[in-house]
């Protein structure tokens, strides 16, 4: 639109001999960078969604997000040295052996070698904590261990230390298929997670399923919409220029559809995380993945 106005101004200037006045390029940039751009784009998508045929919520064979990524991102993830997420894994490895809290115990004091003791963890989590009956993910499990066994303060969600430890622990399960089992204890949480997945919300009135099932593989601006699996998290996102948790990514989607973002570690995000893990059954753990 602005281009048309500029061209018209250009013609006008030639015809009248008056100096040209262009729309400030900065203003245009500001629009491109502003949340209003996403608002417009996702708004358009919202109109197209009801027209699409309903598909099954869980595709027969789930496809990892990396299969939707470009060649450069794939190469970055495949090369363990070029993958910047490995810096957090390296940091986590150091932290694993550092004593914390009043107990003066490190993770290694009890769990010894993470490469054997932490193997399969990322494939099995989130799960139900037997003591409290609540859903726990790797982050809350680490913090629980800190409080109970190390007598240390819990780490803040998205703090460098917690991200490094989570990435290091989850990395030990790399290549193993996600295998969260549905049973009597986690069924109510799975059901609630599924409910959230199908619930339209926010100003865009979009549910997770509208993009990540009904429009998976299609374009949203320069992005290809993935099936939205969490098997690569904590993952390094180029947008963040850092590693981030799955909950940070989920909150970004809440923001994208202009919904109220649940707090880190809230029941809503944990239930959703559990449902996503169940949905990603069979996909290999990629931690630390690389995403745009």
């Amino acid at each position: 639109m602005l281009n048309v106005i500029d061209r018209w101004r250009c013609c006008w200037a030639e015809a009248t001999g008056k100096p040209q006045r262009f729309a400030k390029p900065l203003k245009r940039m500001r629009f491109l960078l502003s949340p209003w751009r996403n608002f417009c784009v996702i708004g358009c998508l919202a109109f197209t969604v009801p027209a699409l045929a309903q598909q099954a919520a869980t595709p027969a064979k789930p496809k990892s997000g990396i299969e939707f990524a470009g060649a450069d991102i794939r190469a970055m993830q495949a090369d363990d040295f070029a993958n910047p997420g490995m810096l957090w894994v390296a940091r986590g490895e150091k932290l694993w052996n550092v004593p914390a809290g009043r107990s003066n115990k490190s993770c290694a004091s009890c769990h010894q070698d993470a490469s054997s003791s932490m193997k399969t963890v990322a494939a099995r989590y989130p799960r139900i904590d037997a003591a409290t009956g609540k859903v726990i993910n790797i982050e809350t499990r680490i913090n629980g261990c800190r409080e109970r066994n190390q007598a240390a303060d819990p780490l803040q969600y998205e703090s460098e230390e917690l991200l490094a430890l989570t990435a290091y622990v989850a990395h030990q399960s790399r290549g193993m298929p996600v295998a969260v089992v549905a049973d009597a204890t986690n069924r109510p949480h799975l059901e609630r997670g599924r409910e959230i997945y199908y619930r339209r919300q926010g100003q865009m009135n979009l549910a997770c399923v509208n993009c990540h099932v009904q429009n998976a593989g299609r374009r949203l601006l320069a992005e290809t919409i993935s099936e939205g699996h969490g098997n690569a998290y904590p993952a390094y996102r180029l947008e963040w220029q850092a590693i981030g948790s799955l909950q940070r990514r989920l909150r970004a989607c809440y923001y994208g559809v202009r919904a109220v973002m649940p707090a880190f570690g809230s029941d809503e995000l944990l239930d959703l995380e559990l449902y996503l893990a169940r949905r990603a059954t069979g996909l290999a753990v990629e931690t630390p993945g690389v995403r745009r």
């Binding site: 040295f81 070029a82 910047p84 490995m86 810096l87 957090w88 390296a90 940091r91 150091k94 220029q241 850092a242």
Partner: peptide, 27 residues
């Protein structure tokens, strides 16, 4: 600040080797 270094452990004299370094930094 975490850094990772990659270079071969051994090399023949006169061989051209590749050296890589990655540093965790917000830049």
């Amino acid at each position: 600040m975490v850094a990772r270094i990659q270079l071969p452990k051994t090399a023949a004299r006169g061989e051209v080797i590749s050296v890589r370094i990655a540093i965790q930094h917000p830049m």
